[in-house]
């Protein structure tokens, strides 16, 4: 058999991601992998397994728990991490509220989205993490399109988009002072379609809410939000049952579902390839606050 020594596009981004995981594990003392139970963090977990196989992950996994999770996702998280043998750290937004570190928003549109930043930064300080792997992708959002693979955060966890470290070749600068940290984005160069194709190729299990299912939902701001204890309905809002699926996994109070009949990975990939809206535009109230909603939150230390 002759070989052309070529890697497919998916193999190339996979190799790049594995390289980044290993680089961080080699150069930092206390890295940690952020895990939401969403498709991107599930792919991240698989990449981390690949990077260190046959050894276990040389770092713990952290879930920032808003208390407003989809139960299906929590169940999935615990099962998957047990399979991998990874150590789980839970950073609880409820605890931040109970301890008076943050104040719960009120009103029907209250969300714990922004509160997570404090919980996250507190956990980083408490565990003295110096590198946090995140599953953000540059194709997701325009502020993220400008983000480095190694994204420096000062002692306040802030991102300064106008003063980022130049990042050349695959030579990453991980030098920091005590109290500072780096957010690392190994799947920066993956697209949403790459993620789905990889999940299919690798046969990776994902939470059931990604597939079309019947759900009690109500319409708000052009999205289908799930009816749950975590949201308060406005007078005009009416709960209906629809066949939907989720394109992203976030907080129940701000993650919208899309109408869908896609019950298999093949069907999801078909839908993603044909869709005309971005995943965050379609399903995330947190990004709709303003043109620069993501940039503003990221500067404060958000994911």
């Amino acid at each position: 058999m002759t070989t052309t020594y070529e890697l497919s596009d998916l193999d190339q981004v996979e190799a790049e991601s594995i390289h980044i995981f290993r680089e961080v594990a080699a150069e930092f003392e206390r890295p940690c992998l952020l895990f939401s139970g969403g498709k991107d963090s599930i792919v991240m977990l698989r990449l981390a397994e690949k990077a260190f196989s046959p050894a276990r992950l040389p770092f713990p996994v952290m879930h920032v728990d808003t208390g407003h999770n989809f139960p299906e996702v929590l169940e999935f998280r615990d099962r998957r991490l047990a399979e991998v043998g990874a150590r789980l750290v839970v950073a609880s937004v409820q605890r931040s509220i109970d301890e008076g570190r943050v104040t719960e928003e009120t009103g029907p549109r209250a969300s714990r989205n922004r509160l997570q930043t404090t919980t996250l930064l507190d956990a980083i300080g408490e565990h003295r993490f110096d590198a946090l792997f995140g599953g953000a992708r540059r194709d997701e959002e325009k502020a993220r399109a400008k983000e480095r693979v190694y994204s420096f955060r000062d002692e306040f966890g802030q991102w300064d988009p106008k003063n980022q470290r130049p990042e050349l070749w695959n030579l990453y600068n991980g030098r920091i002072l005590r109290g500072e940290h780096i957010r690392v984005f190994p799947i920066s160069n993956w697209t949403e379609l790459d993620i789905w194709e990889y999940i299919r190729r690798e046969g990776i299990e994902i939470p059931s809410i990604y597939f079309a299912h019947e759900r009690s939902v109500f319409e708000r701001d052009g999205m289908w939000l799930s009816d749950s204890d975590h949201v308060t309905l406005l007078d005009v809002e009416e709960v209906v049952t629809r066949r939907v699926r989720y394109r992203t996994v976030g907080d129940m109070s701000c993650t919208g579902a899309v109408d869908s009949t896609a019950a298999t990975l093949e069907e999801i990939i078909g839908e993603v390839a044909a869709t005309r809206t971005t995943e965050r535009g379609a399903t995330r109230a947190d990004d709709r606050v303003s043109e620069a909603a993501m940039e503003d939150r990221k500067k404060e230390g958000y994911f």
Binding site: R138, K142, A143, A145, K146, K162, T191, E291, A292, E295
Partner: peptide
């Protein structure tokens, strides 16, 4: 579409490297 940062939109210039992704049936 490509000038994603607030300052870039305000000043009408590209300041930093932005990464974009697209694919055709032939290449990514």
């Amino acid at each position: 579409l490509t000038d994603g940062l607030r300052a870039e939109r305000e000043q009408g210039i590209t300041i930093d490297v932005a990464y974009r992704y697209f694919a055709t049936p032939k290449r990514k």
